[in-house]
């Protein structure tokens, strides 16, 4: 079994217009910048993007939005140091927003990956984000029913990957990536270091390879926050 993908452009080539894509990262931490930029070069349109945020500055997801590739954002916090790319298009009606509480977003993705079509959470009960949703009382407390969330693709950044798709992460860059890997029909990870099977101690594996369809090596990956602090622009 060898899940290596030779190039970034090969990694994103299957992504077509209209696709729903989960993209790992919380702010700049864990953002798979090289995969996102390869996707911009590939250029599919009408995409639905699932991420905690909605881009910052002029790289990564913000750059996708600036290229008018994104029809809808599903996220918890579409604000950042420089959210202009999203904000302008949202207020102009060119991009749709589905705002989801952060923990509900995480659990919807987890449920999607775990084959659980719906679940109940106290989060959002009595607020406008629960309007129209089924509410049920358990043991005297109210809970809102939320649906699973799945995607056609997940693009994630990991630290070490082996050719079977087993992954480790770096510090808080882990965030959404392990659950997104489970919830997408096709998950591609860019890894800073690609090793043969056995190169990762099984005790250290965070994402087992069964959840990963492709790995591509990007040594010395760019960090979104660092790019934004350098005022980088893509393309």
């Amino acid at each position: 079994m060898d899940k290596r993908i030779a190039t970034l452009s090969d990694a994103v080539a299957p992504i077509k217009d209209g696709a729903t894509i989960m993209i790992g990262g919380f702010g700049g931490s864990g953002a798979p910048i090289e995969l996102i930029h390869a996707l911009i070069d590939h250029g599919p349109k009408d995409l639905t993007i699932i991420n905690n945020n909605a881009g910052n500055g002029h790289v990564g997801i913000a750059a996708m939005i600036e290229q008018n590739m994104v029809r809808k954002m599903i996220c918890s916090f579409p604000r950042s140091a420089d959210p202009r790319a999203f904000t302008e298009r949202y207020l102009g009606g060119q991009i749709e927003l589905d705002i989801v509480p952060q923990g509900t977003l995480a659990e919807r993705i987890r449920a999607g990956g775990a084959g659980i079509p719906a679940f109940y959470t106290p989060t959002g009960y009595g607020t406008e984000l629960a309007e129209g949703k089924h509410v049920e009382e358990f043991d005297g407390k109210h809970y809102v029913r939320e649906r699973w969330l799945k995607a056609d693709f997940a693009l994630i950044k990991a630290e070490v990957g082996d050719t079977m798709g087993n992954l480790t992460y770096r510090m808080a860059a882990r965030n959404f990536s392990p659950i997104m890997a489970t919830a997408a029909a096709h998950t591609v990870a860019q890894v800073s270091s690609l090793v043969p099977p056995g190169g990762i101690d099984p005790e250290d594996v965070i994402t087992p390879g069964i959840f990963v369809d492709g790995v591509t090596e990007v040594s010395n990956p760019q960090q979104e926050e660092a790019l934004n602090r350098a005022e980088a622009v893509y393309p």
């Binding site: 918890s76 916090f77 604000r79 904000t87 509480p101 952060q102 923990g103 959002g124 607020t127 984000l129």
Partner: peptide
């Protein structure tokens, strides 16, 4: 632009 994060 609404933004809720983890508050709820």
């Amino acid at each position: 632009v609404p933004a809720v994060g983890g508050a709820m």
